[in-house]
Nucleic acid binder design. Structure first.
Lengths: 252, 252
DNA sequence: GCATGGTCAATCATAAATAATCAAAAACAG
DNA sequence: CTGTTTTTGATTATTTATGATTGACCATGC
């Protein structure tokens, strides 16, 4: 088999399986370990695959895996709940919508379930933008300083440019929801961006699993009376009185 | 058999089988290896097939010249050259620099070699931003519409926000460099962003391997007299007279 | 501590592919 | 028919790809 032909096959296999070991490739392509290793080195150098210990992974999945600890750990918590919340939220997007997607893990999950490619999307998350593009959505990104470790775009430039847009729908994550404090987050700059985005949106959806209720963080970015909350378990009655709450069953 | 006739047959065979070895062709066309090789060289030069070690592959699977090649496919061309160019360019970044990094594959490679985390960076490439962040650099991103398939951020928002910045250094990729046409790219929107970025930069470096010289694309974004060109092979003398050219040896 | 199993880069010899060169054969113009 | 050009096949040295081997490295378990 031609070298180039084999390498193309490796790229296909890696992209399809997302992750593959050297041993699997030697088996599939009937080559020696040394050859496969050389191929992986070459393909990695050409930025066509991501070489890891023991094999290779596709570039897409690697982008997600390079996330810093904090985000990874966060994502592990309440996966089931976040999944159904995201799945439901995605159904709310219609054609012609101009959608703002906030940075954060819940909203990142939301993008996985988005099927509408007729709507237009704008986000302040680097990874969110990349994911939307990969799905074939018409995507814009806000400009500004990138904050580590959440990889959210923040700062005066960001706030200024949001003000020019008018969203039909905004999907926001939050660190806490409380009656008086409203929606809160620990970072001042992120809070500012969120609050301006909400101001520019016709409808705002807050995606929050049940653990977020009662939590209060440093800065408030939204009053709960002005948002629709999408969650997985019915919260205390006082929340239902003050805000519009949609409860999504776990097996939605 | 006529030479031309045989060559046409080779093209058909290659296109049909997608990949074929020299040995197979000698068998099928009843010619010597030397003849087949000569044919492959000629057909490759005429851009009718893709010559690889051991045989040939069809063009359609690897590169379509009609549209802009996707980022992935571009990345595998001239790896060594791009490597040494990027490596050198990275050494030009000092503390206190405010650096603009253009979207594109060469500049993406550049980021791999960046060691200075004291400088501040701003880019219009999604992947570029992510990579800079992962390296621990203070990074900003321009806002605007994201263009597929290059994943560059473009549009009026983008142009407007660049104008507020003043870069000490700008690193730009290009599709072509010519004496009269200057630096050119096939996309109008990308060209606009590039030209504004250059205007806001104190020094502009154009990263271009030797294959880019003499190429002209649809839109000009820079005059070569106003940029420093970093390349891998000494170009024609007329370029040296009109612009500042730094030639980086292959094993830099 | 030591051994073990797995991965990996470096090295080597072998095999294959290639470019360069040359001479013979074919096509062609005068 | 003669001299020239083109094409071809064979031969050569050079380059490239490959598989096997070695020792290094690291985590795991004894």
């Amino acid at each position: 088999m031609l070298t180039e032909e084999r390498r193309k096959q490796i790229v296909s296999i890696v992209n399809e399986k997302k992750a593959v070991t050297v041993a699997e490739l030697t088996e599939l392509l009937d080559s020696s370990e040394a050859t496969i290793r050389r191929d992986l080195n070459a393909l990695s150098k050409a930025s066509l695959i991501n070489k890891v210990f023991g094999g290779a992974t596709s570039l897409d999945s690697s982008n997600i895996k390079t996330t810093e600890e904090s985000m990874q750990e966060k994502a592990r918590i309440n996966i089931e709940e976040k999944d159904s919340i995201s799945k439901y939220a995605a159904t709310l997007i219609n054609d012609q919508d101009f959608v703002f997607i906030d940075s954060g893990t819940t909203t990142l999950k939301l993008i996985d379930y988005i099927t509408n490619t007729n709507a237009k999307y704008i986000t302040n998350g680097i990874r969110h933008a990349k994911k939307l593009i990969d799905k074939g959505c018409e995507t814009s990104i806000l400009g500004g300083r990138i904050k580590t470790p959440t990889e959210a775009i923040i700062g005066p430039d960001c706030v200024e440019s949001i003000s020019k847009y008018h969203f039909t729908k905004a999907f926001m994550g939050t660190n806490g929801i409380a009656i008086d404090a409203g929606c809160t987050t620990p970072d001042v700059d992120e809070a500012l961006v969120k609050s301006v985005a909400i101001k520019q949106a016709y409808i705002t959806y807050i995606l929050a699993d049940h653990t977020k209720f009662g939590q209060v963080n440093a800065v408030t970015f939204a009053d709960i009376s002005k948002c629709c909350i999408i969650t997985d378990k019915e919260p205390a009655k006082r929340y239902l009185e003050k805000s519009i709450v949609k409860v999504v069953s776990n097996n939605f």
